[in-house]
């Protein structure tokens, strides 16, 4: 475990990572899902996690959220052990349809986070309007989730997460169920939202291109049990651009490297 801390120090100097996994092992139902995972995420970093289906990406994210407690090892947030979920850490779930309250309108769903944060009701409408505008849903405040498209529902979930004013944003394949065009639009929106708020992001995806396009760093997990198999720094200029970034030689090199890694794990 000390070695992990040393490695982090070597990479980042002595800065405290915002989220630190220190030799984390998680056993669920007698099965080791994650084994000896050490990982530090710096404040403001955009970390992407990729890996074959069932390798433990979601589980790692749930550990970072405090929804699971490690069987052994530690998960720290800002240097403090994480005992339970906290408002500074927001999660965007893949299944937006289940994560929204169907009986509340778009405004009501955003309001839920503001209520939980103790914002006085007089201040909420203005803030709700602002957040819905930020995610590109102005004028949809009165709609129920069921009256919105998948892309709009996912935007709404992101708005609710932003309402938490999170220091860390955890996203579990947030665009997995959306079509390619909607997906690219949302990728750029997330990048600009994150740039504006300075939040730290852990982003899980199946899509290797998406991981490289978004991330400062990409981690590939190996399955059974889940552990780190590859770690790539993405030195692509920001702001990223859907056309030029994806044609960048560095992008193509990383893509090849990641692709070979995933192919090897699937055999």
């Amino acid at each position: 475990m000390a070695s992990a801390a040393k490695r982090l120090e070597a990479v980042y100097g002595t800065a405290t990572p915002q989220i630190a996994f220190d030799g984390v092992t998680l056993v669920l139902g007698g099965k080791t899902i994650i084994e000896n995972l050490s990982l530090g995420v710096q404040p403001g970093e955009f970390l992407c996690i990729v890996g074959a289906s069932g390798c433990g990406k979601t589980t790692a994210l749930r550990l970072a959220a405090g929804l699971y407690q490690p069987t052994s090892g530690k998960v720290n947030f800002d240097g403090q052990p994480m005992r339970e979920p906290r408002r500074e850490i927001a999660i965007v779930f893949q299944d937006y349809g289940k994560a929204l309250l169907p009986w509340r309108t778009a405004a009501g769903n955003v309001s839920l986070a503001l209520e939980a944060g103790g914002m006085p009701s007089a201040e909420r409408p203005a803030r709700i309007e602002e957040l819905l505008r930020t995610v590109g849903l102005p004028g949809h405040a009165g709609k129920y989730p069921s009256e919105m498209s998948g892309g709009m529902q996912q935007r709404l979930q992101i708005a609710r997460c932003l309402a938490q004013e999170p220091k860390t944003l955890l996203m579990d394949e947030p665009f997995g169920a959306l079509d390619a065009m909607t997906r690219q639009g949302l990728q750029d929106e997330v990048l600009s939202l994150v740039a504006a708020s300075g939040a730290t992001v852990i982003f899980v995806t199946h899509d290797l291109d998406e991981a490289i396009y978004l991330g400062d760093r990409v981690i590939g997990l190996l399955p059974h049990p889940g552990r780190i198999g590859i770690e790539l720094s993405v030195n692509l200029p920001r702001p990223r651009d859907q056309l030029s970034t994806r044609e960048h030689p560095e992008f193509l090199r990383l893509r090849r490297q990641l692709f070979d890694f995933i192919k090897a794990t699937e055999q």
């Binding site: 339970e84 906290r86 850490i89 999660i91 289940k98 309250l101 839920l112 939980a116 944060g117 938490q164």
Partner: peptide, 26 residues
């Protein structure tokens, strides 16, 4: 929906708030 309880947990909602804002309406 269990997912909604997770949303409530990550929002650190009180027990009472979970009952009245999540469970009862659902």
């Amino acid at each position: 929906e269990p997912r909604l309880y997770e949303v409530a947990r990550s929002l650190q909602m009180s027990r009472l708030a979970v009952i009245f804002k999540i469970a009862l309406p659902s």
